[in-house]
Every structure is written in C-alpha cells, then in structure tokens.
Write a protein that binds this DNA or RNA. Structure first.
Lengths: 359, 359
DNA sequence: GGTGTATATTCAAACGTTTGAATAACGTTG
DNA sequence: CAACGTTATTCAAACGTTTGAATATACACC
C-alpha cells in the first residue's frame, strides 16, 4: 500500500503507484488544457488509481500555490439567535454556485470570541468577511487589521456605512410602521408599545416608524404605555422581558387593547403574561411581534409579526462579498468607494394573535 | 510600504522592513525556545513591525509545513433543526480550550450537499470529522474515503457502531419510558401516541420505552390511538403532521386524555389541533413532547417534554474526536478498536401542557 | 594562537500543489 | 539526414512557513 507520511493520500502516492510523474498526475486530475495531450489510457489509469486510493487534493497546498483560498469568513454574533440561520441559508445559496466555502464562526454573543474569530478569519486567509450582527455589537477594531490585509468586509444587521463598511439591514422604520398600521386598521387605539433595549440599533428606527404612523392616523400613544426592554446579551431574554413588562402593564390598571412588542420572543412573553391573567389573545387583546422566528409560527395562538427577508438579505450580502473579492483582484487595491447601504422592506405576516379591537 | 504580492502581509515583508532574516522573524513571532537567544531589542523591534503591518501568519502555509491543520470538520445534517445549535455549543466549548477550529458545514438535509461537504472536509484536511445527524441520514460512502485517509470520525444522533463508528445519542428508550411514566403518574390511561416516521432511527426505541412502561403499569395502548408521522425531509414538518393527525384522532371519536407526541414540534401541532377544536390543554387533554427546543419553552401553554443533554453530548463527541486525533498520531494508524457507544439519559421537563387526567 | 564555549543569526530543505518551460520520442519533410 | 512539428511527459520553481543544522562573532582558557 501507499506509504504516506501524513496519513493522507498525496499526488506523490498516486505518481508512485501509477509510475507517472507528479506533474502528469496533477495535470490529469486537474483537467488542465494540457491534459488533452495525455494519452486517454494514461488518464483513465491515473484517475482510477486516484479513486482507489481515496485521493483528495490538499486544499492547503492548493491555496498556497494558487494564492487563493476560495473561502469566505462568516462571523455570526450568536448562532442561537434564530435570526441567523435563514441568513446563513441565503449566503450558502449564493456561495454554493461559486465554489467559495463559507467558514462559519459563532461568537456566542461574546466579545472576546468575536475578536478571536476575526483573527482566525484573517489567518485562514478568508478572501472576504461577512459579519452577521443582529444583537449587541460593540465596536471592535475590525477596521484596522482587516483593512491592512485588504480583505473586503460586509455587515448584515447594522448600518456601519459611517465606518466605511457596506451594510445590509432591514428597513426597521418601515417595519415599525407596518406593525402599527396593521393594529390601527383593526381598530386599535389604546396600544401599548414595548421598545427594544437602548443599546440595540434596531430599537430607535422601529419606534420612529410606530410614531410616524400614530401621527398620521391621529392617535396618541400614552407615555405610560411605552416600555423598554432591559439590555441583556442573551437573545432569548426577550421572553422574560415581555412577561415581566406585561405584569407591570396589567398592574398599572391602564386599559389597552393591543401590545406592539419589539420582537417575537417578547411578544410570546406578552402572550404568556396576558393568558396567565385570564386575558384572551386575540379576543381581548392583540399582540404583535417582529422577526418571524419559528416559535411564532408554531405557538398557539401563532404570532402576527413583521418578517425580514432574511434569506434575500443573505444572498445580497454574499453577492457584495463576492463583488468585493472580484474588485480587489482586478484593481490590486480596494478603492474607497462610497460604502453602500441596502435596506430591504419587511413584510407583514398576519396570524392568530391579532384581531379586531374589542368594543 | 511593503510590496506584497498576495495582498497579505508575510514574514518576508516583516523581514525586509526590519532588516532581519525571515527565519529570525519567524523564531521571534512563534516564540520558539530559540527566541530566548535573540536580543530583546531585536525581539521588540520585530514584534512592533509585525503589529504595525497587521501581520497574521498564513494558516495554510503553517499547516502545510507543520502537517497539522488544527481543524475538525463538523457536518451538521440540518442547521435549522433546533437540535443542532446546543450540540454545536458543546463542541465549541470543548474545542475552544484546545486551539482546534471547528469547520462547520450545513448539509441542509440534502444528500448531495452532505456528500459534497464530506469531500470538502477531507480536502480541507480536517483531522477528525464529527457528524451531527438527528434527522434522516441515508447511508453514504462515508466509510470509504474517510477511512482511507484515516481520519477519525464520530457521529452524534445515530448508532453506527455496527459500521465501526463511535456514536453518541440519547437513550431514546429511557426517554420514551420517562414520558409515559409521567403521564401515567398523572393518572392518564387512555393515551394516544404519535410515533416518529419509520425511517428515523429514534422512532423505534422511543416506542419500545413507551410500551415497556405501559406493560409495567398494566395499561394497554389502543392500536387505534397509535399514529405515525409521515417521512418528510423537513424537520419543521412535524408541526403539520401533529396537527393533521390530531384532526384524525378527533374525527375518529375515540376518547383519550393525553397525547404523547414524537417530538416537540409534533406536540405543538397537537396543541394547535386540540385548541382549534375547543379542547383545553392541559385541563381537557395533556400533551407531551420530546427534545426541548425553544418553541416549547416560550409557547403558551409551554410543552412538557423530554430533554436531551445536547450540550453534554456535544462535549463528549468533541472529546472523542480529540482522542481519535491523539491516538492516530501516536500509533500511526487507527487500530480498529471496538467502536464505542454512549447513550446519556434524558431528563423529564414538566411544564404547562401536562396535568392530571380529567375525571 | 589554537581550541572551546556561549551567544546571535541565517541557510536551506521540506510540506503538497500547480504550471511555464524544457525535454524526449517520433514521425515528416526538404 | 538534418531540421522541424507534433505529441506526450517531466523538470523545477514557487507559494509562506518552520526548524535542524550551520555559520559567524565574541570571549575566554590553556
């Protein structure tokens, strides 16, 4: 049998077994133009041996030689956030057609891991970096090393165009507006709002959208019915937050017929709180979420929500990364274009948790 | 400025900038024993230049030279299956201490992608492969090439010891028994069971556990109240299945006070079906799930379920992978030990969806 | 002044590939 | 038969890194 040193089958193993040189073997297996000039019999022979030995070209050696790793680093801020998976799906879909391999890393909402993985990404010579950061994302010295090694970078979930980074994120203002308009059309006027945590960049624009529609529709949102989630790193904490705030709302005694929650998990917490108090959803009170994650769909009542086109956003961001790579190699240096911003419109998903305002 | 060819900062760049040789720079940056003999002034100087230039060692060149990639391939059958994330977390946790980088790939429940990624894993010279395959996982020619390249392989979610592969999976028999015993202790005797799809390896042992406890407790499960989910690739299809089967159950008119569902999504489908028919959970009918995924926790009523120690299983499987690597390098060839099987006990999680049997 | 030792730095080979240039073998042609 | 074209295969350098062996310098010792 072949006498490999590394335990892996190499071109040399095939060369020795077949009696041809390493070059010939490479040419045949890579199907270089030159391989057309190799006798068909030889080609067949070499390919058979490669298959029999279970040969797989060494991506490391190939990359070193070709000076391209065919890799794109994907840095997810927290994979357990249901937000991430559809985005990844979109990225994969776009990348699968290209031969680029996504190198996915999960920072688990930890700043130290995030920085760590960023270094790893550079070490692994990813040709571009995609950052998925829906949740808290303290500024890091991203720009420094990534720029120095002129690796194109794109971010999904935050607007960092101010830092010169191409960004894709949902149009949160439009989303807030969509949610508010839906409740208004159902006849609700006394609407409680649970805003997102201050630190989260999504919070403010959603609130702006809500207020805009309120103004347009000539209704006022009582300040006593506006609440704010506490800042917590754990994305699942929204549920507890929603539950807790609902208890407060009910205790205050102030009447309302609908709750507009910051996200789906918060909305699910609200449903729990209302149900515990004997208030039926949606007959007695409507509840509105944001994000459209799996639990909203399978809960009973299912949650009406605002859907982000996550998959499409993933495709878009992958496209940008590929563009960045293409541009980089074409000009030799990424010229500092005006950074681009893409804010796709979200979509209203009407389910069971919203209904006409009670008389 | 440095005149790199590849766009990346290399040792050569640092050497030229600092006036020392590539070797010296490498020795200093790698902090080899030899580096103790390099003048402190020189060391400092070199390190500063490296930092200033934003140098990151090229993992590809390193791996080639060191003949070790410090990479473990993780092949998830479907990342959107909530089952996967906690497992990944466990794997990460164990691996983070070791310097090994998990190379995670999502086969999206597609056979072709799975095979594809397996090849990629070998090309990328992963030193071990972890397969996470909770859902359908048709036999592939895994064994062939992976074995030929003597890469240790471990699987989580199926028992493949018969094929000589170390396997970790929850004790499904015990889980089924746990669920059944819980319902029995609440006084239920007329229990409907929704079995998993035939093709899924978890289905049979769970069913065995259920039957064992039924026998022990001297109750019989009416064959008319035993249903089976259809085989579908989409892990989220359990919800539809549960809903559909519930409608059948109700239509049949046969009385029952509890439903033991194959998994959580199925249970959520059952709740939807029952609620739609005006049957209250758990007052009129209890519902039991299996898996403990996020939706079960945040739905109202939350779902009583059987929790798999997914994170611990991830840690275990990572441990085995590391062992496999250590052993391989020690002996030069993996000797065909008796493959190991680890079946951790699951845990009962009592929530809101189960209660005393109605009189 | 030759030999030895400690200190500081560099040489050069190797890892597995790819690929432009070189070579060999074999007609064909002038 | 020498010069040339094809055709089929191999040489050798390079990618960026690591590292055992080699070298160079200084400094003492007998």
């Amino acid at each position: 049998m072949s006498q490999q040193k590394s335990g892996h089958v190499t071109l040399l193993d095939i060369a020795r077994t077949s009696g041809f040189s390493v070059s010939t073997v490479s040419i045949v297996l890579r199907e270089t133009p030159l391989s057309l000039k190799v006798a068909p019999k030889t080609r067949k022979h070499i390919r058979e041996i490669a298959k029999k030995l279970g040969y797989h070209p060494d991506a490391y050696a190939q990359s070193l030689r070709r000076r391209s790793t065919q890799t794109i680093g994907i840095l997810a801020f927290d994979l357990s956030d249901p937000f991430c998976i559809p985005v990844l799906r979109g990225i994969h879909q776009r990348l699968d057609q290209t031969g680029y391999l996504p190198l996915t890393m999960d920072a688990q909402a930890r700043r130290d891991l995030f920085d760590n993985y960023l270094h790893l990404t550079l070490q692994r010579r990813a040709e571009a970096v995609i950052v998925i950061a829906s949740w808290v994302f303290e500024e890091t010295n991203l720009l420094g090393d990534v720029r120095k090694n002129n690796v194109p970078i794109v971010i999904l979930g935050r607007d960092l165009t101010a830092r010169g980074i191409n960004s894709v994120l949902v149009d949160n203002e439009a989303g807030g507006a969509l949610a508010m308009r839906h409740l208004r059309e159902l006849g609700h006027t006394r609407i409680a709002v649970i805003r997102g945590p201050q630190q989260m960049c999504d919070s403010e624009p959603r609130w702006q959208g809500i207020q805009r529609v309120a103004r347009e529709q000539g209704i006022t949102i009582a300040p006593q019915l506006v609440f704010e989630l506490p800042a917590l790193a754990d994305p699942a904490s929204g549920f507890e937050g929603g539950l807790h705030i609902t208890r407060q709302m009910l205790a205050s005694g102030r009447p309302f017929t609908a709750v507009l929650a910051f996200d789906d998990l918060t909305a699910l917490g609200v449903v729990r709180g209302l149900t515990a108090a004997g208030i039926r959803v949606p007959q007695d009170c409507s509840v509105m979420g944001f994000d459209d994650i799996l639990p909203s769909e399978v809960a009973t009542p299912s949650i009406s929500t605002i859907r982000q086109p996550l998959k499409e956003m993933g495709i878009e961001v992958a496209e940008w990364a590929l563009n960045g790579i293409a541009r980089g190699s074409a000009t030799g240096a990424t010229r500092p274009d005006e950074p681009r911003l893409h804010m796709p419109a979200p979509e209203l998903v009407v389910r069971m948790s919203t209904g006409p305002a009670a008389a």
